[in-house]
Design a protein around this nucleic acid. Structure first.
Length: 218
DNA sequence: GGCCAGGACACCA
DNA sequence: TGGTGTCATGGC
């Protein structure tokens, strides 16, 4: 499966560095903003997440302590643009509780385990891996809907693999390097946004003229 | 008006 | 264990 390393090189050549994760709303510390974004982006476009982050910043709800202090109804109103606002407000409070159980965001990121994150109601495997990779800087590969779609299109996945199977596939072949995993996931999302969702053999596929494997995609 | 977006969980067979 | 329904907003 050397294709995964080769695919990364081709995506990087095509799109260049993506430099995820954007943190520019002033939540503190910036790693907490990544954690909040990871929850808010669940099944939601990033533009709507940005509206919610701007609301939080505007209301000076900047830290995990602030999230615990604010009434649920107030937090719901702030995150409303990101959708599922009742669920996500509760999930942010649960995550803030876990963070503060470690004393600080820094301590939380150094010591929290993946299992401890997954034990939080509303934190699933992708959200947990996003937090570990993008906030804690740990080499945990993030799998999402784009990964399934793009690599199924390339014939490297059937589309029926579990989250853990896909994650293991990437982590087994690639060097465990957080910067690599960071860029790779972001590049996959960039590619995924260009792939036509409705037509598996779409002639407009961006891979058509620089196909990873020297053949038509589909 | 329908479809989709950087998921997770409850419920059921 | 796998399939299905639910949660919700905003852009196109």
């Amino acid at each position: 499966m050397a294709e995964l390393a080769e695919t990364y090189q081709k995506l990087y050549s095509r799109y260049g560095p993506q430099s995820w994760w954007p943190t520019s709303y002033g939540l503190r510390p910036w790693q907490w903003e990544v954690c909040v974004g990871a929850v808010l982006t669940q099944n939601t476009g990033w533009r709507n997440v940005e509206r919610a982050l701007a609301n939080l910043a505007g209301a000076r709800c900047l830290t995990a302590v602030d999230v615990l202090k604010i009434p649920a109804s107030g937090l719901q109103a702030l995150v409303r643009p990101a959708g599922y606002f009742r669920q996500k407000a509760q999930r942010l409070k649960s995550l803030a509780e876990l963070v503060l159980a470690f004393g600080s965001v820094g301590s939380f990121l150094r010591h929290v385990t993946r299992e401890r994150l997954l034990a939080v109601h509303g934190i699933g495997p992708e959200t947990a891996d996003c937090i570990l990779l993008y906030a804690a800087g740990r080499p945990e590969f993030v799998v999402d809907a784009y990964t399934r779609r793009a690599f199924s299109r390339l014939g490297l996945l059937t589309g029926n693999e579990s989250y853990g199977q896909i994650r293991q596939m990437f982590e087994a072949e690639l060097p465990r390097d957080a910067r690599l995993f960071n860029e790779y996931h972001a590049l996959i999302v960039r590619l995924g946004k260009e792939l036509c969702r409705k037509l598996p053999n779409c002639i407009g596929c961006p891979l058509r003229n620089s196909c990873m494997y020297g053949r038509e995609v589909g």
